[in-house]
Nucleic acid binder design. Structure first.
Lengths: 209, 209
DNA sequence: TGACACTTGTCAATTCTTTCACAAAGTAAA
DNA sequence: TTTACTTTGTGAAAGAATTGACAAGTGTCA
C-alpha cells in the first residue's frame, strides 16, 4: 500500500506547476531545485522532498527537465483528464466562477448552471442555459458531472449538497461559508472568503505593533 | 516582547468566530471546549490551546461564555475597527467581491473601485463610481485605504501593486494568481482560485484508488 | 580521459503543531 | 457547607513538517 501524501504537499504542487509553466513558456529546458528555490522563496530541500513523494523526476548533476516535470505534476494533479463542472447559484460569484472556469485553460468545462430563482431560468451563463435547482436530478441522469461549484447562500448549501450527493456527485468546490457535512468518499474543497478576509484583517492589525 | 502567534492558529480563528456567531444567534449562553469540539470536528485540546494564545477566556467548571468569547475573537481579528477597501479590476470577480464586501456585515466598506478600461469609467459598482487606475494616486491623497482587493489580470497585478505600495497601501487581498513581491511591513492574503481547483482535482483523482 | 563542480535523493536533526493528561479551580445540588 | 462533577489552562509527550547534510551519481571542460 502506498503511503498517504499530506495535503500540505498537495497544496504546494499547484504553485510549482505555475512556476514551471512560466519557465516552460520562457523556453527554459532545465532547472535545479536550488534555482527554483530562489525564485519561489522556499528551500531547495522542500522542493526535492515534495517532488520525491511522487518519484525521482530529477537527475544528479543536471537538475529537473522543465517540460517533463511540468507534464508530470499536471498528471499528479489530474489535469490530464477533463472535468465537467456544474455551477449552483447564479449570483455575482456564480458568474465570476463560471467565467473563471471557462477562461483559464485548465481541464475544466462548465456543462450546467442552476439557481432557485425562476426568473433566471433560460438566461445564459457562458454558453449554458440556467436551469432550476429542481431539475438537477434529471440533469444528472444524462450528464457526467465531476464536480459542483457551490456559489449559493449558506442557508441552502447543505440541502442542495445532500441532493447532489444522493444523485452521484462526489466533489464540491464550496464557496458558501458553511462546513458541509459529507460522508466518506466525498471530497470538499472550501474557499471561505470571509475567513480569508478575517485572517487578513488580523494581519493588518498586527502591522501597528 | 509577546510571542509570535502562528498563522495556523489565526487561520482557525475565523472558524471559531463563525460557530460562536451561530451559537450566539441561537441564544446559547455558555459552551465547553468539549461541546464545541464535537460540533466543529476538532479536538477540545486544540480549541483550548488556540484560545489560550490570547489569554484565559474560559472558566473552570463552567466553560466559555459565548457572547464574551465571540466579542473577544472579533477584537483579536480586528473586526472592531472599520476597514476601507478599494477594488482594483472591475471584471466579474471584481463585481462579486464588491458585492460580497457590502453584503456580509463585516467591518469592511468599499470606498473606491478602479479599472484600466476607460469605457468603465463612471459606471456604478455598488455605490461607488468606477475610476481609472491612473487616478489612484490622487484618490489615495484624500482617502484612507486599509486594503486593496486585487481582482485584475495577473499581467498587471505586480505593477499596480507597486504603485499602491508607493502611495501608502499596506494590505492586499490578492485574487490574481501571481505571488506578489512586497517589502517588509506589507501584508498579502492570497486567494488563488486555480490552486484551490487543482488541489480539488488531485483529491478527485484519489477517489478512484 | 580525468578531475572537478554540480545536483539529486534520502536519512537524520530540528522545529513546529497537535494531542494527552492532570492539578487547580470552579459549578451544582443535597 | 460539603461532596461529586465539570472544565479550564498548561506542561509534557507524541506526531508532522521542514530543513540540514552528505553519499552517490552526472555533466563539463581541459
Amino acid at each position: 500500500m502506498e503511503k498517504e501524501i499530506s495535503q500540505a504537499v498537495i497544496r504546494r504542487l499547484p504553485r510549482y506547476y505555475r512556476y514551471l509553466g512560466d519557465l516552460l513558456h520562457a523556453g527554459v529546458e532545465r532547472i535545479s531545485s536550488n534555482e527554483l528555490s530562489v525564485k519561489m522563496h522556499v528551500t531547495a530541500s522542500q522542493i526535492r522532498q515534495d517532488l520525491n513523494n511522487f518519484g525521482g523526476f530529477g537527475q544528479q548533476g543536471y537538475g529537473y527537465n522543465v517540460p517533463y516535470l511540468y507534464e508530470e505534476i499536471g498528471k499528479i494533479l489530474g489535469l490530464n483528464h477533463r472535468h465537467n463542472v456544474i455551477v449552483i447559484g447564479v449570483g455575482n460569484l456564480g458568474h465570476a466562477i463560471a467565467n473563471y472556469i471557462s477562461f483559464e485553460r485548465l481541464s475544466f468545462t462548465m456543462i450546467g448552471a442552476f439557481d432557485v430563482n425562476p426568473e433566471l431560468k433560460g438566461k445564459k451563463l457562458g454558453n449554458v442555459e440556467v436551469q432550476l435547482v429542481d431539475e438537477i436530478p434529471e440533469f444528472l441522469k444524462t450528464h457526467d458531472v465531476d464536480l459542483a461549484a457551490l456559489t449559493l447562500p449558506k442557508e441552502s448549501a447543505e440541502a442542495v449538497t445532500q441532493k447532489l450527493i444522493a444523485n452521484g456527485v462526489k466533489a464540491f468546490w464550496n464557496f458558501a461559508h458553511v462546513d458541509l457535512d459529507v460522508p466518506e468518499g466525498i471530497v470538499v474543497q472550501n474557499v471561505h472568503l470571509s475567513d480569508s478576509l478575517m485572517q487578513l484583517s488580523y494581519n493588518i492589525n498586527q502591522l501597528k505593533d
